[in-house]
């Protein structure tokens, strides 16, 4: 159903929040195969799959129980997890993502599998800003000079604040 992507990470994790947070931060298009403790020693069929669009979970499915949506997340079980993360062209996900039965809410994975309400909120926030038909609106966006100047200004402020927080001002001044 989902074509094979490029493997980015294959890890055993005791907590999923950092991995999900990294996916969100990088706005990854792709999917993760998640197997719980029992599945670590079991067969490939004991795994859940969660897909991501722009870093936001879209659908979940479990191969053993053949259930989709939030139920599939319950079927994955408890930590530790084997977490295999793959990148995929967003076009390849378009068709699977039309299946409404497998869908999960943007924050559901962070809540149920990672137990991280703050991450769930951040994910919902991102989902709310997703441009579902990205080709539309780009010209209008580019015509809004004031908005773009706003983005640039706040990015510069953020860059300066972060340089301070990361302690890299010195490296920058030396340039």
């Amino acid at each position: 159903m989902i074509p094979e992507g490029d493997l980015l990470r294959s890890r055993v994790l005791t907590a999923l929040a950092p991995a999900l947070s990294a996916v969100l931060e990088r706005r990854l298009d792709g999917y993760a195969l998640v197997a719980s403790r029992d599945g670590l020693l079991g067969s490939d069929s004991e795994r859940g799959v969660v897909t991501f669009e722009d870093g936001v979970p879209v659908l979940a499915y479990h191969s053993r129980t053949d259930r989709g949506g939030p139920q599939a997340l319950d079927d994955i079980g408890a930590a530790p997890y084997r977490f295999d993360l793959y990148a995929l062209d967003p076009d390849a996900l378009e068709l699977p993502h039309r299946n409404e039965d497998l869908r999960v809410g943007p924050g559901t994975v962070a809540e149920r599998l990672a137990g991280d309400p703050a991450l769930a909120d951040r994910t919902r926030e991102r989902a709310g800003t997703l441009d579902r038909d990205p080709d539309d609106g780009l010209e209008a966006f580019l015509d809004d000079e004031a908005a773009i100047e706003g983005i640039k200004r706040s990015a510069r402020e953020e860059a300066t604040e972060k340089a301070d927080a990361w302690g890299i001002e010195e490296a920058i001044e030396e340039r």
Partner: peptide, 10 residues
Amino acid sequence: PTVPAVSDGL
């Protein structure tokens, strides 16, 4: 050529 990609590129 998408809003998120251009906005993040900026």
